[in-house]
Amino acid sequence: MKNNHKSRQKTVLVTGSAHGIGYQLAYVFAGHNYNLVLVDKDAETLAIIAEEFSPKFGISIKTLVKDLSISTSPTEIFTELQQAGIKIDVLVNNAGFGTYGVFSETDLTTELKMLQVNIVSLTHLTKLFLKDMIAQGYGKILNVASVAAFQPGPLMAVYFATKAYVLSFSEAIANELEGTGVTVTTLCPGPTTSEFQKAAAMEEAKISHVNRMMNSETVAKIGYDSLMANKTIAIPGLRNNILVKSVRFAPRNIVTKVVRNMHELRK
């Protein structure tokens, strides 16, 4: 039973797949002949993607219009796929968003939704799909974090904290899963050209105007290759790797001040 995955076409589930890194990850998997389950709350864009990808790649595509800030969405996704007889070989927890501003002044409702999407739904989906992966002796999980996971983030305090959770959680279960045939990779991109900055209302922050910001396509390809190579952590780009390593040796109060400066508005 554990070898069934070798004789059939594999299926990947990608959350937040209508835009940015999620869209590009779906595109990369489609190019490698994976059937797709695309999850996003943007129904119109999902329909356009399915119409584009299906004839182009000759794969099966199922779209699920779900808002992961709603606590019941992970269970609904899992149940609908079980009822349809769709087995997930690769789970990509990409959905996430950020908020910008001083914590005492930012909107609590938005931040609670962010915690639900970035942490709770990611954890819930992983829990739901993991047991079947272990039972079949094969599976891959790609959790999208950020270089934000490696340090505190003044002016984006809750967002940075959510990504620290994703990294810690993913590293821990990657260790637990050794020898099961299931691997977990955490993708930690730096600033990337996408709709993230606009959604977080931080278009005028200094960090949104760094030179040579990586594009979503490059980040997605690195994420896919790292997942297939069974890497535990993938940090795209030399600059981001240097940043992460330097943070380990710098005093925490200095790191926090530097990050605060990077997130200040441009003058």
Rank of each mutant, 00 (worst) to 15 (best):
M1W: 14
M1H: 14
T11N: 00
V14T: 06
S17L: 10
S17F: 10
H19F: 13
I21S: 06
I21P: 08
F29A: 06
H32M: 02
Y34M: 04
L36Q: 04
L38F: 09
V39F: 07
I48A: 12
I49R: 13
A50D: 07
E51L: 07
E52R: 15
F53S: 09
S54W: 05
K56Q: 13
I61D: 00
K62P: 01
K62R: 15
T63K: 13
T63Q: 07
L64F: 07
K66V: 00
K66I: 05
L68M: 03
L68R: 01
L68T: 04
I77V: 06
Q83G: 03
K87V: 15
L91C: 10
L91I: 12
V92S: 01
N94S: 05
G96Y: 02
T99F: 04
Y100D: 06
G101M: 07
G101D: 08
S104I: 14
L115Y: 11
D132F: 00
D132K: 00
G139F: 01
G139W: 01
K140E: 03
K140F: 00
K140D: 00
I141M: 05
L142P: 12
S146C: 03
V147W: 04
A148S: 07
V158S: 10
V158W: 00
A164K: 08
A164R: 09
L167N: 06
L167K: 07
S170L: 10
A172F: 05
N175V: 11
L177G: 05
G179C: 08
V182R: 11
L187C: 09
L187A: 06
G190Q: 00
T192A: 06
T193I: 13
E195D: 14
K198A: 12
K198T: 12
A201G: 02
H209C: 04
V210M: 12
V210E: 09
K221Y: 09
I222D: 09
M228P: 13
I233G: 04
L238H: 07
R239M: 11
N240R: 07
N241L: 14
S246T: 15
F249H: 14
F249L: 15
R252G: 11
K257N: 08
V259P: 04
V259D: 00
